[in-house]
């Protein structure tokens, strides 16, 4: 085992040591900010703690509360609905835009479009959400004004249970799409041109080239984006927090908002940790499922 980890060649051993050295900051960061808090959450899930007075052992009370919580099912459902919608749109639209950008455009034009799509990604999420909350104001927002110009009645983007999740999805897609476009573009450009040449020689049309060559060779990129996209989308917080504060009712309350609410608004750290653990289990299962299913549709060169 040891010989497998540390091969005999001194050069190789040096390389591996160097690799670990480079990884060290990330490993320390993960230990302090991810693994540590995970174990802390496990410990906190069996206590009652309001931050102000010492924690008290509560056994499985928090887990019982989780099972009998009348709000949590709807909140998980809302979270999944928003996550699925944002992910599907980002994957589809990201791919379409990347394919369009991959055409032979003038260098300046191509750079301009790339910058335009990527720019929202680097803007603070708070600023983005605030901007959209102004734009989507029912009575005085620009979006409804423009829709009004084409005869569409004002939409209560932020004040209705039907529309407010849509507003969250739009805001999230606008903000995150650039990242998907750039990653897809990278994936497209890493496909060797020989494949396209061979397909053309075989007389394939453009659609056939896209569906039989591009898409299969892009499948690892799609898997990568869908895994990190799913993990990110399930944890969406800032957009609904700023746009709607979870409302009306619980219409846009996501599971991370609920954790925050229980922990930092109601000072129930024990229960907040228990919900956080349930989210960990959910994301773990979903990711596992994605990898299992990926065997059927992901092709590696």
């Amino acid at each position: 085992m040891v010989s497998r980890l540390l091969p005999q060649s001194p050069l190789r051993r040096k390389e591996i040591l160097a690799a670990y050295l480079f990884l060290l900051p990330t490993l320390i960061g993960s230990a302090v900010f991810i693994v540590g808090p995970m174990f802390a959450a496990l410990g906190l899930s069996v206590v009652q703690w309001n931050l102000l007075t010492p924690p008290q052992f509560a056994g499985l009370a928090n887990y019982q509360k989780l099972l009998s919580d009348t709000r949590i099912d709807d909140i998980y459902l809302t979270t999944f609905k928003i996550a699925l919608a944002t992910m599907a749109i980002k994957l589809l639209l990201g791919l379409v835009l990347a394919v369009l950008l991959d055409q032979k455009l003038h260098r300046w034009l191509s750079g301009f479009f790339r910058l335009s799509f990527f720019f929202p990604y680097v803007v603070s999420v708070t600023a983005v959400a605030l901007m959209w909350s102004f734009l989507m104001n029912k009575d005085l927002g620009l979006v409804n004004y423009l829709l009004g110009q084409i005869g569409i009645e004002r939409i209560p983007w932020l004040n209705s249970s039907a529309w407010s999740p849509v507003a969250v999805v739009i805001t999230d897609v606008w903000k995150e799409l650039g990242f998907y476009v750039i990653v897809f573009l990278g994936g497209l450009q890493s496909i060797p041109s020989e494949f396209y040449d061979a397909a053309q020689v075989d007389g394939a049309n453009r659609w056939q080239i896209f569906s039989r060559v591009t898409l299969p060779l892009l499948s690892p990129t799609i898997l990568f984006l869908s895994v990190i996209g799913m993990i990110g989308s399930v944890q969406i917080f800032a957009q609904p927090q700023i746009l709607t504060d979870g409302g009306p009712g619980d219409a846009t309350r996501t599971i991370v908002m609920y954790i925050y609410e229980q922990g930092f608004r109601f000072f129930d750290m024990g229960y907040a940790s228990t919900i956080a653990l349930s989210l960990f289990v959910v994301i773990f299962i979903l990711t596992l499922l994605q990898f299992r299913l990926s065997r059927r549709w992901v092709f590696y060169q």
């Binding site: 004040n159 209705s160 249970s161 409302g247 009306p248 009712g249």
Partner: peptide, 22 residues
């Protein structure tokens, strides 16, 4: 004493009233 919970519950339901959904 549990002001935050009270306010949260009250606002959650009043937001449904003001959205004309309940």
């Amino acid at each position: 004493p549990r002001f935050n919970q009270m306010e949260n519950i009250f606002l959650r339901y009043s937001s449904l009233i003001f959205a004309d959904e309940m």
